[in-house]
C-alpha cells in the first residue's frame, strides 16, 4: 500500500505490506516525517491510499462510508482536540450520540468510561475542557475514543505533549485498558522507550516504508539494519533488561 500527497515528489508511504492482528497492541515507531502518522490515518480514511488496499476484518475500508467507518474506530491525537464548548460528558458521549443512542444509555456509558480512565464521574462529568490538566484532558480524549466500543483504537503520539511523570501514568493506563478490553490498538510514537514499553509488536518505519516488524525483544536483539540499530541505540542492552520485568512492576 502507498500514499502520495498531491504536489509531493516522493510518496509519504510506499510499499507497505502489513497485517495487524485483532487484539494486538501495535506501535508504529520512527522519526518524524517517516510516514507513520500518514499510515495510521489511512486506517480511518482521514488519508486515502493512492495505491493498494487496506482491509479491516477482511473488508476494504474504501467500500465503507467514511463517517460510518470512523464511528467504529477510536481516534486519539496528540493535541487531544476535545470540543471546548462541550462538557467532559458531552465530549465522551459524542460518538454514541452520532450513533443515535438513547440519552440514559449514553450517560451510563460516560460514567463507566470515566471510571475506566480513573476520573471520578461526579467531579468531572460537568467540567469544561479548559478546567482539566493536560493529563486529564488526554484521559478524556481516550475515553471519547473508546465510547462506542470500537474494535480498533488509533493513537497518534497521544502522550507526547505531557510531562514525563504524567506520560508514564498514561502509558500504564492505556496498557491496562488494552488488557481489560482487548481492543486492537495502533499507536504512533517516535519515542523508543514508549514503543518498547507498550507494544506487543513494533513496526519500525523510515522514509515512508516499513524497515522491520516484530516483538520488542526481537527488535532489540536482532535489529534488521543500521537504521534500526541506531534508533534503539547504544542503550539496547539496558532496554532489553528492562523488558524482562513485567510492566505492572515498573
Amino acid at each position: 500500500m502507498g500514499v502520495r500527497y498531491a504536489n509531493a515528489s516522493v510518496p509519504a508511504v510506499h510499499d507497505v505490506d502489513l497485517a495487524i492482528e485483532a487484539g494486538q497492541f501495535a506501535v508504529l515507531l520512527g522519526p518524524s516525517g517517516c510516514g507513520k502518522s500518514t499510515l495510521l490515518r489511512t486506517i480511518n480514511r482521514l488519508v486515502e491510499p493512492t495505491s493498494g488496499t487496506l482491509l479491516i476484518d477482511g473488508g476494504d475500508v474504501r467500500e465503507r462510508d467514511a463517517t460510518e467507518l470512523r464511528r467504529g474506530i477510536g481516534y486519539v491525537i496528540q493535541a487531544v482536540g476535545l470540543f471546548p464548548h462541550y462538557t467532559v460528558a458531552q465530549n465522551v458521549g459524542v460518538v454514541p450520540k452520532l450513533l443515535g443512542w438513547e440519552q440514559v444509555r449514553i450517560d451510563a456509558r460516560v460514567d463507566e468510561l470515566l471510571r475506566l480512565i480513573r476520573l471520578d464521574p461526579a467531579r468531572y462529568r460537568d467540567r469544561k475542557p479548559r478546567e482539566l490538566s493536560g493529563g486529564e484532558a488526554q484521559r478524556v480524549g481516550v475515553a471519547r475514543a473508546l465510547a462506542a466500543q470500537p474494535r480498533v483504537l488509533l493513537m497518534d503520539e497521544p502522550f507526547a505533549a505531557v510531562d514525563a511523570i504524567v506520560r508514564a501514568s498514561l502509558q500504564d493506563e492505556i496498557a491496562r485498558v488494552h488488557r481489560e478490553l482487548g481492543t486492537t490498538i495502533v499507536f504512533v510514537t517516535h519515542d523508543v522507550d514508549e514503543a518498547l514499553r507498550l507494544a506487543d509488536r513494533i513496526v519500525v518505519m523510515n522514509a515512508g516504508h516499513v524497515v522491520q516488524t516484530g516483538p520488542p525483544a526481537e527488535i532489540l536483539e536482532h535489529p534488521a539494519d543500521d537504521f534500526v540499530r541506531d534508533l534503539v541505540g547504544v542503550d539496547a542492552e539496558t532496554r532489553r533488561l528492562a523488558l524482562e520485568r513485567p510492566l505492572i512492576e515498573r
Binding site: 470512523r70 467504529g72 481516534y75 491525537i77 482536540g81 452520532l98
Partner: peptide, 18 residues
C-alpha cells in the same frame, strides 16, 4: 477554530455538515 478540534471532529465520524 483549532485544526486539532476539526481533525478530532472528523475522526469521531461527524459528517462535514455535523
Amino acid at each position: 477554530v483549532p485544526r486539532a478540534t476539526l481533525e478530532a471532529a472528523r475522526g469521531t465520524g461527524m459528517t462535514e455538515r455535523q
